[in-house]
Nucleic acid binder design. Sequence first.
DNA 1: AAGTGATAATCAGTAATACTGATTATCAGT
DNA 2: ACTGATAATCAGTATTACTGATTATCACTT
Lengths: 171, 171
Amino acid sequence: MILRKLDKKPEEAREGELGLSECLLDRTGFLLKKAALRIQEAYEGRLDPLGMAAKHYGVLSVLEEKGSITQHEIGRCIYVDRTTMVGILDDLEKKGLVERKEHPTDRRSHAVYLTSKGKEAVGKAHHLASTVEKRFLECLSAREQKELRQILRKLVVSHYSSTKASERGEG
Amino acid sequence: MILRKLDKKPEEAREGELGLSECLLDRTGFLLKKAALRIQEAYEGRLDPLGMAAKHYGVLSVLEEKGSITQHEIGRCIYVDRTTMVGILDDLEKKGLVERKEHPTDRRSHAVYLTSKGKEAVGKAHHLASTVEKRFLECLSAREQKELRQILRKLVVSHYSSTKASERGEG
DNA sequence: AAGTGATAATCAGTAATACTGATTATCAGT
DNA sequence: ACTGATAATCAGTATTACTGATTATCACTT
């Protein structure tokens, strides 16, 4: 292929094809990374009305599902580093959506709880997240959407053990 | 669920289930992000012997496929920002894998070429990348692997237009 | 009861990434 | 010559995920 900058507008030069790289569109690594960026972009700002970002939503979801658990356990559930958890919980506590309480049996740990405000927020967040994902995935058939989730889930769970060992209490 | 820190080792407490969040394992956003991180991790260091990282591999692939194109065009092919391209090409030029030459008709642009060393490197990189992905995907059936690529490709191409307009020459 | 090694939360600092905005040189069209 | 757009570059920002160290506490040994 020869340089052909000045003869045509780029958009017209490659109609359907868009000029993307064929080779990389067959690399799962490339595709995963770009798809992840795009959906992150789709989420961006959508949770702002609730005073949270995607990272906060993940924590609230886990707390809703599991009840009161420690910071370390939340991290394990959502593959988030212990040091990153501190900041996320600081945010959420400041917003009044969670509380760090004394752990009943282990004074090193914090027992993290959803406040009633937090419970309300996570309900709304579920709704917003569903809307965002629905729109993002609408270029796929219902079957493809389901298949994508199943396959990704398999991948993520299989590679669970590749998370840094120190973060899973196996040091 | 009640706090139950001290009665069991975490590993034994939840055998198959691993304590992951059911709710988030149904969120495509969460799954895409974590899967992308894991495969990135799988790539990490594997291209070092060739003196490059994944981001360099992407650029070399495009150049191999499209021949000499401008920096901006490379970026469009692989969804990389113009400012990020500068650094990546600096690296590659330093390693002697690409050359920035004068563009034959547009003196603002650079015509970027693979050197013979670069051509050799990208061939080896293809091989390494295939190995990395094969291992990463081996928890999936051949059908699932193919399906995953097709679905992700559909997603990425559909959301091509959500790339920052300024990066696609539509400002 | 004291001692040892592991663990939970925290903090400070690092490295990588993707970006914004400004600058310079050049181009295309008036 | 003048205007607005574009290509490459640079400086600086925000975010993310992490490393390593610290403090308090726990579980277990002796």
